[in-house]
Design a protein around this nucleic acid. Sequence first.
DNA 1: TTTCGATGAATGAACTGTTCATTCATTATT
DNA 2: AATAATGAATGAACAGTTCATTCATCGAAA
Lengths: 224, 224
Amino acid sequence: MTVLAAPCPQPYNGVNTYVMNGVEAAVSPLNDHQLEQIHEERKRQIKKAALKVFALHGIAGTKISSIAAAAGISQGLSYRYFSSKEELYTELVQDALDEAESAMGHIHELPGTPAEQIRAFTCLMLDPDNRLSFLLIRQVQISEEAPEAAKRLIEQHPPEKTIERLMPIFIKGQKEGEFYEGEPAQLLLCYFSVITGLMLQESPYVEDFWIRQADVLMRMIKKP
Amino acid sequence: MTVLAAPCPQPYNGVNTYVMNGVEAAVSPLNDHQLEQIHEERKRQIKKAALKVFALHGIAGTKISSIAAAAGISQGLSYRYFSSKEELYTELVQDALDEAESAMGHIHELPGTPAEQIRAFTCLMLDPDNRLSFLLIRQVQISEEAPEAAKRLIEQHPPEKTIERLMPIFIKGQKEGEFYEGEPAQLLLCYFSVITGLMLQESPYVEDFWIRQADVLMRMIKKP
DNA sequence: TTTCGATGAATGAACTGTTCATTCATTATT
DNA sequence: AATAATGAATGAACAGTTCATTCATCGAAA
């Protein structure tokens, strides 16, 4: 059995890897740029798979082996790119925040009525390209299980400001008679629960599926 | 060290638990009937707590210790009443199915327009007394983790028939011009995702909170 | 062109710490 | 005496991480 073994020849070290051989690093087989590009590409591949699994099952409900399976790689490989499950998760949260931020930044500048703005926002949330990111963020906000690092990221960023940004739009919509009356906070709460429910839904593959859903949703809010 | 001391002998429980002594009790310990009643009462107490935790976190995400904490009892006690976690879960699913069945049985007999029927159904799903049961059922339907026994229960019972029961109502509503047009299946799908989202929401304690939510929801479906 | 050696990406079995369902010796209650 | 209840202890399974090994690719030498 196994028990030992020994050599552990190369320690690891994040930065550089082997040097040995004489004349320091005289030879480099593939140019550094290409190498790095390949490296980044693989990272992206892993992240993409991980996002899908994490967003749907949470960090605790996700095993590395599932991610590996989803990414089509072996269990151990992700550790070459991410030093731990938590780091991977946290990095995904960071990306999601960036994406959400950039996606939401434009909502305000959009011209148009409040209804048009909310509709745009709705489409954004339901867009398959953003959906998982929003789910991940919401996950960190809602459940306990998220790593501390991820929670801190969310606190810093303007994440939950979402509500604060939307609220004025709702109020304006009501004032102008475009929206239904009622406590705006409650309308927003309902709207959000509903959006979350929809995001969890796996979509059948119809081109404009989400657009149509968004229109159905809007009927909750906007007078015809 | 710790924290607690004190055994917490009386588990509170809303209703009442023990009959504490009493003259006659001193003489004859407790007759069988009384004993059984106490036993059943405690079972109900455990089930109530377990339902809440299971419905929100799933069977895998729930530990016996959480249930115990929620029920205000010790870790080991539930094993006096249920032989395993799975058994407890499965029994809850059975109860939920019964409840759902009896609750839904009346939908059809309700007089009124399709909109009124759907509204009644919506209120049913959102009713705090039913909400958790419906969530539990949906959980078994959707995820893999449920025990085989529970899955079998669901297959036998008329569970997913929900959709089949609702569909005709939707179609009728559209035919009569009371509902919005569109693929009825899609409208239903949207409606269901949305309901699920709402059920997951913890309600602020306002008396008619869910009623109002139901009305907001109905706007998705029914023309004004 | 073929062969060789070097490099580091990739694998997956083994290791290990942790978690958690279940048990049980003990105590409290009637 | 008998039953209810406790909560610490157990142990098995689970899942994150490591690491010895294999594989694929490439530059250079023959």
